[in-house]
Design a protein around this nucleic acid. Structure first.
Length: 362
DNA sequence: GTATGCTTTCGGC
DNA sequence: TTACGGCCGAAAGCATAC
């Protein structure tokens, strides 16, 4: 049976949530911003509504630049309320999960799903099911979403991209290559700016050209693994299954420092509240970690990390405070550049299932 | 040569 | 003129063990 894979994306999610809460802003450009706190306007745009996008503003753009573009346009800038979006996302995702065979959330506002079984592999039936999902999300939560359907995750993702905002795009298996072929490679899921530049040098500009490119040539510049994956994906042939995700595999907190510095003690002091917050998240997860990393982002925005893995799982930062400080000393000593942002990441959680199997041996 | 584990970087939103 | 977050998962790159 032909697979029917879907991808759902909540339209301009954070900004749409704010619009629903305060409908009077709907006819204005709306920006949900991450203010870093260093100066009044330092930070970036998290999400912009479509009115703002039409004026050239998008996510990731510095707030000061966005403001300039929106001068005299009566724009509304709202600080990000992450906990609120998280709570709404959880409810919306449950609405979707209830209506599909397999569900895989990949971000706060998007998810893959498999409806092969309940559609019987019939794309007309699948289209009806997808329309029902969009209607249920709108009815229950007031949010518009876009859905793409296709034979693989890559096709579904690209279809939802083509459908937005507030649309449904079905790419039947036979139309896969005609749908993907003309699109620029940068649009392909898995191809970022770096890979796109590498492909451009090889003369590969469209997904169709990538699909028919010489695999050996791609391997030389991209590495065997990436080359093989992208070559398949460009033909819409990726066989990645949709799989429900478990618990997070890493947790991190990162902050913008009050001023640029390469003084490890100073950095550590500023990180204390963030570490306490991270500690709370670790505690509520209830699972100890084995690896801790110091993260530094320099004034030129280049990133570096130093990490340490312990023999035995660690339950709190209190137990490895000196190790974290030592990692920051290593990090700052490894370059002359001052740091603008700093953070800590923990990973290598001992899984609950692992603990269960361990007790079986006792 | 292959499997495994750790560190670092990349890519996406 | 420039401007610049805070996360996440996955892959690359390297070392080690067998």
């Amino acid at each position: 049976m032909a697979r029917v894979i879907g991808h759902i994306d909540l339209d301009y999610f954070y900004a749409q949530v704010e619009e629903i809460e305060n409908p009077s802003i709907k006819d204005k450009p709306v920006l949900v911003c991450v203010f870093s706190g260093r100066t009044e306007d330092s930070g970036v745009v998290g999400t912009a509504n479509y009115l703002a996008r039409a004026l050239g503003v998008g996510s990731g753009m510095p707030i000061a630049m966005a403001k300039k573009k929106l001068e005299g346009k009566d724009a509304v800038l709202i600080p990000m309320h992450h906990a609120k979006y998280e709570a709404i996302s959880e409810k919306v995702m449950q609405t979707v999960r209830d209506r599909v065979d397999v569900f895989e959330q990949t971000g706060i506002d998007e998810a893959f799903f498999d409806i092969t079984n309940r559609s019987g592999g019939d794309y007309s039936e699948a289209e009806r099911l997808a329309a029902e999902i969009r209607a249920a999300v709108l009815e229950s939560h007031g949010l518009t979403a876009s859905i793409g359907l296709g034979r693989s995750k890559v096709v579904a993702k690209m279809a939802s991209d083509a459908a937005k905002p507030n649309g449904l795009k079905v790419v039947v298996p036979e139309s896969t290559t005609s749908f993907l072929g003309p699109l620029p490679v940068i649009k392909l899921y898995g191809v970022g700016p770096k890979t796109a530049r590498a492909l451009d040098i090889l003369g590969v500009r469209t997904i169709g050209e990538l699909a028919s490119a010489d695999l050996a040539g791609l391997e030389k510049t991209l590495g065997a693994n990436t080359a093989h994956y992208l070559h398949e994906a460009a033909a819409g042939k990726d066989e990645e299954p949709v799989a429900e995700r478990g618990e997070a595999t890493q947790l991190s907190r990162i902050i913008t420092l009050k001023k640029d510095t390469r003084d490890a003690d100073q950095i550590f002091d500023e990180l204390v509240p963030a570490l306490e917050d991270l500690q709370n998240r670790i505690a509520s997860k209830g699972v100890p970690f084995r690896t801790v990393s110091a993260i530094g982002i320099a004034i030129d925005l280049s990133a570096r990390t130093k990490s340490k893995t312990f023999e035995n799982p660690v339950e709190s930062f209190a137990a490895c405070k000196s190790d974290v400080l030592a990692l920051f000393k290593e990090l700052t000593a490894s370059s002359d550049k001052e740091l603008r942002r700093a953070g800590v990441r923990v990973s290598g959680f001992t899984t609950k299932s692992g603990q269960t199997s361990l007790t079986q041996f006792q």
